[in-house]
C-alpha cells in the first residue's frame, strides 16, 4: 500500500521535483566556481577569506532551494485529492489518519531526492577546489541541514494542506494579512498614530518572534557554508 502511495506521489511531483534536484546538484558546484587557490599556501590575495566571502553570496540560495523543494513536495501530495474533493480518498478502506500518514511518509521519502542530489553536488564541489590551509569542506553537514530544512517546510505545509481548505485558508490568510498589515502599515501609520508603538518596528519584532529558539525557523539560521574554517 505504501509503495503505491509513494509511486503516485512521485507521479504527481516528478515534473516539479526533477528541476529542483538538478538545481540542488548544481548549486554547490556553482557556488565554488572561480573560488579556490592554486595550491599555494601563501598568497597575498587572501584566498581563504575570498572563498568564505565568495560563498557568502550563495548562502540564501541553499535555504531557499530547500524551502522550495519542501513546498513543491507538500503541495503536490494533496493536490489530486483536493481536485477530487477527497471523495475518492475517503472511499478507500483505510482510516483517514493512516491514509494521511502514509502520504506524509511518502513525501518524506521524496525529500531525500533533492537532498541526495545536493550531497553529491556538494562532494563534487568540495573535490573540485584546492582548499587553502585552515579551511575545510562540510558537504555532509550541508546536505543534512538541507534535508532537515526540506523536511520541516514539507511537514508544516503538508499538515496545513491536510486540513480542510477552509482551515488552511484561514491559517495562511490570517498569517499573510497580519504580516502585510504589520509590514506595510506597521510603522508608517500605526507608529505615527500610537505613541506606544514608536521605536518598535512591528514587522521586525514579529520576525524576531518567529525565529525564537527552538522555533521552526531555527534551521534556516544555521551555518549553511559548504566551506568554512
Amino acid at each position: 500500500m505504501f509503495r503505491s502511495v509513494l509511486y503516485v506521489h512521485w507521479k504527481q511531483v516528478h515534473l516539479g521535483l526533477i528541476p529542483l534536484m538538478v538545481a540542488a546538484f548544481s548549486l554547490p558546484l556553482l557556488s565554488v566556481q572561480g573560488l579556490g587557490g592554486n595550491g599555494g599556501v601563501t598568497s597575498f590575495n587572501d584566498t581563504s577569506l575570498a572563498i568564505i566571502q565568495g560563498l557568502q553570496v550563495w548562502l540564501p540560495f541553499f535555504s531557499a532551494l530547500a524551502a522550495a523543494s519542501g513546498v513543491v513536495i507538500a503541495l503536490s501530495s494533496w493536490n489530486w485529492d483536493h481536485q477530487l474533493n477527497h471523495v475518492y480518498a475517503l472511499s478507500l478502506p483505510v482510516p483517514r489518519w493512516r491514509y494521511a500518514l502514509m502520504k506524509m511518509g511518502a513525501g518524506a521519502v521524496l525529500t531525500l531526492f533533492p537532498a541526495v542530489a545536493l550531497w553529491v553536488g556538494a562532494h563534487l564541489a568540495a573535490a573540485s577546489i584546492v582548499l587553502p590551509e585552515g579551511l575545510h569542506a562540510y558537504p555532509n553537514a550541508l546536505a543534512i541541514r538541507f534535508l532537515a530544512t526540506i523536511l520541516l517546510t514539507y511537514a508544516i505545509l503538508f499538515a496545513m494542506a491536510a486540513g480542510t481548505v477552509r482551515t488552511t485558508m484561514w491559517v495562511t490568510g490570517t498569517g499573510i494579512l497580519t504580516l502585510f498589515i504589520l509590514g506595510l502599515i506597521g510603522n508608517d501609520l500605526l507608529a505615527g498614530q500610537f505613541e506606544v508603538l514608536r521605536g518598535t518596528h512591528i514587522l521586525e519584532w514579529a520576525l524576531a518572534k518567529l525565529d525564537w529558539v527552538p522555533g521552526p525557523l531555527e534551521i534556516f539560521l544555521g551555518n549553511w557554508r559548504l566551506i568554512d574554517v
Binding site: R96, W97, A100, L101, M104, I144, R145, A148, T149, L151, L152, A155, I156, F158, A159, A162, G163, V213, P214, G215, P216, E218, I219, G222
Partner: peptide
C-alpha cells in the same frame, strides 16, 4: 537543529493524523 526539526515534524504528524 535536527532535534528541533524532528520535534516540529512530529508535531505536524500529530496534526496531520487529526485530519
Amino acid at each position: 537543529s535536527l532535534a528541533v526539526v524532528l520535534g516540529w515534524a512530529l508535531a505536524m504528524v500529530f496534526f496531520t493524523a487529526r485530519s
